[in-house]
Every structure is written in structure tokens, then in C-alpha cells.
């Protein structure tokens, strides 16, 4: 089974041009989509279904920078098996735990905690944006030198992002419940 980059005819790089990715996706969709095989024998139709479902998976993964990075990490063996908590900096865990505790304090509260929830959301979103802003630079660094330290750093950013994203989701759940 060929990889996502290969399927789209792209060099395996973390930095990529969205317009070019879309162009290649459309071009291959025109060739492989099941609509093009409606009059073909069953075997060919099955192949088209298989190929185009993988093409769609590939496009969906590669067009999103975070999913793209996760995919490359997995390809490079940095995501195989469950990660141990040793890979997560203890300060980050402490911070996230405290943020969760604070959020729990607000949870189930009346309408009066709404401003605090909104402030928490704004702060989390700010942290999220700050984490994501580091990615393009790290992507370029990996593409240029392919050093494993860079990948480890990327993974650190993604982990942090994931923790904060969970907090954002939690706070949004609270906000919609309070609405």
C-alpha cells in the first residue's frame, strides 16, 4: 500500500502548497472516482472504490497541518504504540491539570460564571494559536535537514496542542450548556 504523499504524487515534505495539493487531488479524483467506473466490470469498480477512498483519506490528512504532521511522525516511527507519559514534560502536565481543576470549579455553576468561562476560552485559544504558530518553522526545519530532534520537537508541540484543544472543547461544552 503506497503512502499518502505517493498517492497524491507529492514529495514527502511537511511544508506544502495547498493550491497544488488541491490541484493534484482533483486531477486524481477525475481518474479514480467510482463515477468513472460505473460501466466497468465489478472488479474494476471495486478497485476504483478502494483507490478513491484512500485518495480521499490522503487528501483529508495532508491538507490539515496537524494531521499531516501526525501522519509523518507515525511514518517515521515516532508514534508507534502507546506513548509513555515520560514523553510529556511534567510542567505541561501540572499546568493542564491545574487548568482542568479550575475549569471544574466553574462547571455546573450558574450564569454568573459565564464571563470567567469566556475568559478561559479566550486564553486557551490564545495558547492554541501560539502552539500552532510554531509549526511552519519546525516543518521547514524538518524538510531541510530531516533531524529526529526536529520531529521530537514537533511532537511536543502537537501534544501540547492536543491538551489545550481538550480544554477548549471542555470549556465550549460548558458554555453551550450554560447558554
Amino acid at each position: 500500500m503506497s503512502g499518502y504523499f505517493e498517492l497524491l504524487g507529492l514529495p514527502p515534505a511537511l511544508t506544502l502548497d495547498a493550491a497544488e495539493l488541491q490541484r493534484l487531488f482533483y486531477e486524481r479524483s477525475r481518474q479514480w472516482h467510482p463515477d468513472r467506473f460505473a460501466r466497468k466490470p465489478e472488479e474494476e469498480r471495486q478497485r476504483a472504490l478502494d483507490l478513491s477512498s484512500r485518495l480521499n483519506d490522503a487528501y483529508r490528512t495532508l491538507r490539515d497541518p496537524v494531521q499531516r504532521a501526525q501522519y509523518v511522525l507515525a511514518q517515521e516511527g515516532l508514534d508507534a504504540g502507546p506513548q509513555r507519559s515520560a514523553d510529556v514534560p511534567p510542567e505541561l502536565l501540572e499546568e493542564v491539570f491545574e487548568l482542568n481543576m479550575a475549569l471544574e470549579e466553574l462547571r455546573g455553576g450558574d450564569i454568573s460564571v459565564r464571563p470567567q468561562l469566556e475568559a478561559a476560552r479566550a486564553s486557551f485559544l490564545g495558547m492554541l494559536a501560539a502552539a500552532e504558530a510554531r509549526l511552519p518553522e519546525l516543518f521547514a526545519a524538518w524538510d531541510a535537514a530531516r533531524r529526529r530532534e526536529t520531529l521530537a520537537e514537533i511532537r511536543g508541540v502537537l501534544d501540547r496542542r492536543k491538551y489545550i484543544q481538550n480544554l477548549v472543547n471542555e470549556v465550549e461544552k460548558e458554555l453551550s450548556a450554560a447558554a
Binding site: 508514534d79 507519559s85 510529556v88 505541561l92 502536565l93 491539570f97 501534544d159
Partner: peptide, 13 residues
């Protein structure tokens, strides 16, 4: 002990 699972964003104390 404070641990975390980065792939799902869980924290456990």
C-alpha cells in the same frame, strides 16, 4: 504520580 496520554489529551493524578 502525574501522568498524561498525549494522543488523547488525558491527564491522571
Amino acid at each position: 504520580g502525574m501522568v498524561g496520554a498525549p494522543e488523547c489529551g488525558d491527564v491522571m493524578k
